[in-house]
Write a protein that binds this DNA or RNA. Structure first.
Length: 221
DNA sequence: GGCGGGATATTCT
DNA sequence: GAATATCCCGCCC
């Protein structure tokens, strides 16, 4: 028996409408090493390219389809897993019909099954609430990596199950780690379960001073 | 527990 | 060449 029709139907909608319903959802990944299940406590919504009805300057797909982001243009209910900062993976659940681009970034959650395996994958976590406290941590605890980009998430290796009832105590605010247009309070598309200890700590997406090669030092005159 | 800085590779300009 | 949907470590409260 597959998913209740609710979920696939829900995933036809833009991520901004889907996101709050994903709070409390269970995401199960059955790998060769064993199963791990996370209960989502924090997600972020991303919409589409500049020339779409819902342009989103913070979205990877804002400048159109590329090899990297093509999974976001694929069918809803699949994963978009991307690699960033040269070392981390993060996973999205793709929304809206094929050919359009929208997705929900899984930012944080509580590991509710497969704790031992999750601890092995995240040896630096001092507490269990840190195992999936952040998008790259969640992906690592779940075992999501490059090979999971574009695979179905509604059955098979990965399964998403909605909670019996939509979550209460949902808060929303600006997205994390995005600076410039699209990153500020104009787009309050980060959703989380208020008070849950597994929700990631926000660091405001302000541009911190960056390491720069000496050759790129600012001109003084 | 909160900060500052470094690390790392893929992408697009 | 520069930015990035981030995390970890060391240090300081």
């Amino acid at each position: 028996m597959g998913q209740p029709p609710d979920l696939l139907q829900l995933l036809q909608l833009p991520a901004t409408e889907v996101a709050p319903f994903l709070l409390g959802a269970l995401v199960r990944h059955e790998s060769e090493e064993g199963p791990v299940v996370v209960r989502l406590t924090e997600v972020e919504a991303y919409l589409g390219p500049v020339d779409s009805p819902d342009p989103d300057p913070g979205a990877h797909s804002y400048r159109g389809r590329t090899e990297r982001n093509s999974a976001m243009f694929g069918p809803p209910g699949h994963l978009y897993v991307y690699f960033s900062y040269g070392m981390h993976f993060s996973a999205n659940l793709v929304c809206r019909p094929e050919g359009t681009s929208s997705g929900c970034l899984m930012r944080a959650g509580e590991i509710v099954e497969g704790l031992e395996l999750a601890r092995l994958r995240r040896p630096t976590a001092k507490h269990d609430y840190e195992l999936a406290q952040g998008p790259a941590r969640l992906a690592k605890a779940m075992g999501f990596a490059r090979e999971h980009n574009g695979i179905p998430a509604l059955g098979g290796e990965v399964t998403v199950t909605l909670p019996a009832a939509p979550a209460t105590c949902v808060s929303s605010g600006p997205r994390v780690g995005i600076s410039g247009p699209g990153g500020t309070t104009d787009y309050p598309w980060r959703f989380w379960l208020e008070g849950d200890p597994t929700v990631s700590k926000f660091r405001p997406g302000v541009a911190r001073a960056r390491h720069r090669p000496a050759s790129a030092a600012p001109k003084t005159q």
